[in-house]
Amino acid sequence: MRKFFPVIFLLIALANYAIGDRIHDYLKFGIMVAQKDLWDEAIFQWKKVLKINPNNAAAHNNLAVAYEKKGLFEKAKEEYEKALKLAPNDYRIKSNYESFLAIYKQLKKLKNEEEN
């Protein structure tokens, strides 16, 4: 039995690597299509990442940016908050979120005016 340990270990390592590689590919492909202004396809790619690993902060961040671009501000906020929860010290997510908040506050102000 002991002699199979290295093989099992190797298989697990390979599987992990393959999953990591797939995530990397989806994230990268998403960015590539986003650069070509194909945001729906980008969202599709980044959602695939979250199906494999729901705790991927990069995918949550990228989705938030895509939702911002589409004017879906509530969804964007949700995704930014998930990303920040998973990676609270990531300066890129923080920077995105701070810029987003300026727009989001404007939206809240408009909604409050409407209610009053």
């Binding site: 990397h24 994230l27 990268k28 998403g30 960015i31 986003a34 902060a57 990069a58 961040n61 990228n62 940016v65 911002e68 004017g71 990531d90 890129r92 997510i93 920077s95 995105n96 810029s99 727009i103 408009l110």
Partner: peptide, 17 residues
């Protein structure tokens, strides 16, 4: 100003890792 949306250019980070 209240009903027509305008576009604002902003910089964002898209992350791979």
């Amino acid at each position: 100003r209240e009903i027509i949306s305008h576009k604002k250019r902003e910089e964002r980070f898209l992350i791979i890792k």
